[in-house]
């Protein structure tokens, strides 16, 4: 049962939605820039193409880690997705503490990129991986604080199912002042988790040539691209579950769910197209400074019941 769920929802549905999300992102970007943009099948074609290409391993690197790291990332993303879907479909069945588990699982793709970068035996990849790690450090603090707001609102339950059920009863948490603030912080953290502009320092193409991914080609790169595309769906999905009451999969609810998702995605895309990249130390200051303060304030507001 669990495995079926993993295969169908965790992998298939998530990757299809993720690829679509990636296309939406690219298309919107293109429109913002007065371009036409790629056809809708483009992300899928990219992945199939990469699967067909030769896989290169840099000389002198540790082959099994280099090729194994992408697996780790995909596994993390798939697991996180299936936990989220399970809660979406049967909010009552989740186990207590899956909130913590999901937050942990969501960092695993970043970690796999870091390890892959380390294993590449390339100074630029090392540099990018170290930036990625620093970015993880910086956004993790405000992210945890912001994600605690729904926990507080749902009566201190760290079960995703309870958070969803509480929202079905009392309306989405984004309706509260604290919810809005926390969601804002969460959105920017997601931007960083996805390594999109302005927080794309780890992969800054014009500085360190795609950083940790520089040595990957063929299948390994396909896996990373797939993972990244899936994360483009999973992270907004998580945010929607935490603040916007999750999806509803019946009748007109589907339309409403799609609207929610596209709305969050459009915000992410617009942020990424209207900002230059910030330096890694600026990103750290940004997350540890204003973002943490806002998250803390929203948490205090939540404790006060606002």
């Amino acid at each position: 049962m669990i495995l079926l769920n993993l295969l169908v929802f965790g992998f298939l549905v998530t990757s299809i939605l993720g690829l679509t999300a990636s296309w939406v992102d690219r298309k919107v970007t293109a429109r913002v820039q007065y371009r036409v943009g790629p056809p809708f099948y483009q992300p899928l074609v990219d992945i199939i193409k990469l699967l067909g290409k030769e896989t290169l391993v840099p000389t002198g690197s540790y082959r099994s880690v280099f090729l194994g790291a992408p697996l780790l990332g995909l596994a993390g993303a798939v697991t996180a997705a299936s936990v989220l879907w399970m809660n979406q479909i049967h909010p009552q069945t989740g186990f207590t503490g899956d909130w913590i588990v999901v937050i942990y699982l969501l960092t695993i793709p970043s970690m796999s990129i870091i390890i892959g970068g380390f294993a590449s035996r390339n100074p630029l990849a090392s540099l990018g991986a170290s930036r990625e790690m620093k970015l993880v450090l910086s956004y993790e603090l405000p992210f945890i604080l912001a994600m605690l707001v729904p926990v507080v609102h749902s009566g201190l339950s760290i079960r995703l199912g309870d958070i969803l059920l509480a929202q079905r009863e009392a309306g989405a948490f984004a309706g509260n002042l604290s919810g809005i603030l926390a969601m804002l912080v969460g959105l920017l953290c997601i931007q960083a988790k996805l390594a999109l502009v302005p927080f794309d320092a780890p992969e800054a193409e014009t500085e360190i040539v795609h950083g940790p991914l520089i040595e990957y080609s063929g299948t390994g790169l396909a896996m990373y691209k797939l993972t990244k595309n899936m994360m483009l769906f999973i992270l907004p999905f998580f945010l929607i579950q935490m603040f916007l009451g999750g999806f509803s999969l019946a009748g007109w609810g589907i339309l409403w769910s799609v609207l929610k998702f596209v709305g969050v995605l459009a915000l992410i895309t617009v942020i990424r197209n209207t900002n230059p990249r910030v330096r890694i130390d600026q990103a750290m200051r940004f997350f540890w400074g204003p973002m943490t303060v806002i998250a803390a304030v929203s948490l205090i507001l939540a404790l006060l019941g606002l």
Partner: peptide
């Protein structure tokens, strides 16, 4: 089990691709 299944899925994707036969080349530093 979930995580292992995820890894297994990844392996399947690998098998679909060309990871079986790799070629070793120098790292790209421009």
């Amino acid at each position: 089990i979930l995580i292992l299944a995820g890894l297994f899925l990844g392996m399947v994707v690998y098998l679909l691709g060309s990871a079986g036969k790799t070629r070793s080349v120098a790292p790209f530093i421009g």
